[in-house]
Design a protein around this nucleic acid. Sequence first.
RNA 1: GGUGGGGUGUCGGAGUGGUCUAUCGAGCUAGUCUUGAAAACUAGUAGAGGUGAUGAAUCUCUCGAGGGUUCGAAUCCCUCCCCCACCGCCA
Length: 426
Amino acid sequence: MLDIKYIRENPDLIKQTVTDKKGKVNIDRLLEVDEERRKLRTEIENLNQEKNIAAKEKDVARGKLVKENLVSLEEKFALLDAEYTELMYAVPNIPSSKTPVGPDESANTVISKHGDIPKFSFKPKEHWELGKELGIIDTETAAEVTGARFAYLKGDLALLEFAVIQLVMGILTNETVIAEVAKKAGLNVSTKPFVPVLPPVMIKPEVMQRMGRLEPKEERYYIPSDDLYLVGSAEHTLGPIHMDQTLKEEELPIRYIGFSTAFRREAGSYGKDMKGILRVHQFDKLEMETYTTPENGQEEQMLIVALQEHINQTLALPYQVVEISTGDMGAPDYRQIDVETWLPGQDKYRETHTSDYMTDFQSRRLNIKVKRKDGKTELVYMNDATAAAGRTLIAILENYQQADGTINIPEALQPLMFGKKKIFKA
RNA sequence: GGUGGGGUGUCGGAGUGGUCUAUCGAGCUAGUCUUGAAAACUAGUAGAGGUGAUGAAUCUCUCGAGGGUUCGAAUCCCUCCCCCACCGCCA
């Protein structure tokens, strides 16, 4: 949610933002509602004052009269307030000056490319072919047991997932590594390590709303018996850890690395990426979530991207870093940067990591503040980003495949795979 | 799931319809005293919002959340959330 004062003062900028981000909210109507709402509020407050005075003086007759007037005004206000809230929630965050303006992913720009695209003496296979042949991805059985877009990950692939998690946890909880990565990226940021978290995977609707991630609802799994949503990312329950809190400046940055299963209905992507595990209803993900002072928010995102790159470099996976355009980015994002990893089977780069810099857009609704050293309180700035996910496994399978159908295990993962160097057919 | 107790400011904790503009204590900040500190004393010590110039001033709202009763609610009623204890069931 943006600051209404800021919207009032910069209506043209906000209207442009809505257009660029393909939002649907009517800003003129919002401003109109805002003004009416404030007028009405003043009237109500004046009556309240009168009511308080009457109560103090035990003037029952006058109190009764004031109350009658209040009732109809309050009804009017409730209607207006509901519309105001709905409109405010629909206004997207303003994009950064670095964000390309465009309708969709075609407007995204490549910031940099790293690693050599591997050359194969044979036609590289897609992950779902490899997974099936090696008996480590079983979507057929999952379809019978659960449905489409679910999978069993078996054998060495299951071990590989745990190895990736351990590797990434090791990187993000190691202050020395963070310091090295920051230095290499030319960043002067805190080297504070990430705190590992296993968060809940269910969340109350109102908290999801405050995260700005409830919409579109069709994308969320919902459990009516308990009025809970399943998270689409660990972000959803990591972000609210500090809701309604005022943090001390000395505590910042606060950095969490959360592991959770992510649940997505994938509404509107029927028929897209149907094979294998690229786009599934359920997958596991490591997610970074950080809170900083306003002035450190952008550098924090740069550190996060540098760490994502470091993870890909450690796994020797070729990738490109992409600046996401207004039409392709999330509504709460000020700036979104993706890391796309090369998938030889598909012969293209695919998104494996995303990094969302939200400024104070989420913290305003979540009411997370920082008390500065000068005594002032202000909203914290928030970042969240992928550290590793099911798609990391896909990238490893496709990039490390061999002519004989086996998969070499990346060196960094071998110790975490109990010394295994290869995935053979089960 | 059942029964009982509870949720009040930074913390502890009082308050069962109007004197609550929330008692008291601790903490914190500043000052007095002191070579310095402690103690003691004095003062201050929440957030959000409206009008207004982002000033002065002033008003409203907030005692877990939301509704209700009442001229008037921290206090009474309803629903929900959370915490604690015990019982039941269960990995």
